[in-house]
Amino acid sequence: MRAAVKAGAHTVYCGFADETNARNFPGLNFDRDEMGEGIKFAHDHGAQVLIAINTYPRAGSEALWHRAVSDAERCGADAVILADLGLLAYAAKHHPGLRRHLSVQAAAANADMLNFYASEFGVKRVVLPRVLSVPEIAAINAETEVETEVFVFGGLCVMAEGRCSLSSYATGESPNMNGVCSPATHVEYHEDHGALSAKLGGYAIHQVGADEPAPYPTLCKGCFNAGDATGHLFEDPVSLNAEKLIPQLAKAGVTALKIEGRQRSRSYVAQVVRNFRAAVDAQAAGLPMPEGMLARLTEGQAATAGAYKKTWR
């Protein structure tokens, strides 16, 4: 958080160190005391903090998620990012003064949906799912007062977020229920006759030469056979980089650009944030965009603009 704030992020989003957020990985996230300190640091430096409580509360255990919302307010968070209908209703009723954003995990993909969440739960901002093209985002913004936020750099969900149980089918742990996708505890690498294969939950979904860099076996970016074809049938092992689309996204009426900073090193976060801040400032000042500074930071060295370009579909 400190690295992101110092590098010029206007806002930082993060989560508590438990299953209430969709990046529930060991060593990540904040306990309650750290969160309070982090928010104070951010506020002292003129930045805001949003707390993601964006998994789907488990039946019988909703109190854990309710407590996270209360603690977020107590820690001084500027907003909470929620996905679950029941949790939105709870927060709107019991914490009306706490600003509510809709998580990408709710996959609200059209203006009717944004307006629905605004009128039902007082949602002020929606993080859009990565299934929309830039013209579609512009059309949504033309039909709603709700602010929109879009991912511009980092991981790329190929499936509509919050609506994918590939991971729990193969490993038993899912983004919606556990805040986990394709967990490392279920990954095995095998070297055989000069080839390195990667399995997730026992399913072989990657193979490279032993001296090649092995991408992490994320399910939707695995290599599969179907019909006569073999390949990355869902998506290549790429990550999202929409830096070149900043002017179009600004013109489309997007309020905030989102960089995936969790599960990343401090130096990565600092460099990506610094570059995007420079680009956003240049855009605001009517100057040309700085280009191509981020290529080395993308996964597997390959990047895509994803669904923002309509042909991706």
């Binding site: 299934v131 609506r163 994918c164 590939l166 074809a229 669904a307």
Partner: peptide, 21 residues
């Protein structure tokens, strides 16, 4: 068969090297 995921992208089209449209 379990409905595991839904996407903006059409995989059948991608398999046949076509776009969704």
């Amino acid at each position: 068969r379990l409905p595991l995921a839904i996407s903006g992208r059409c995989y059948h089209a991608r398999l046949h090297k076509r776009t969704k449209d």
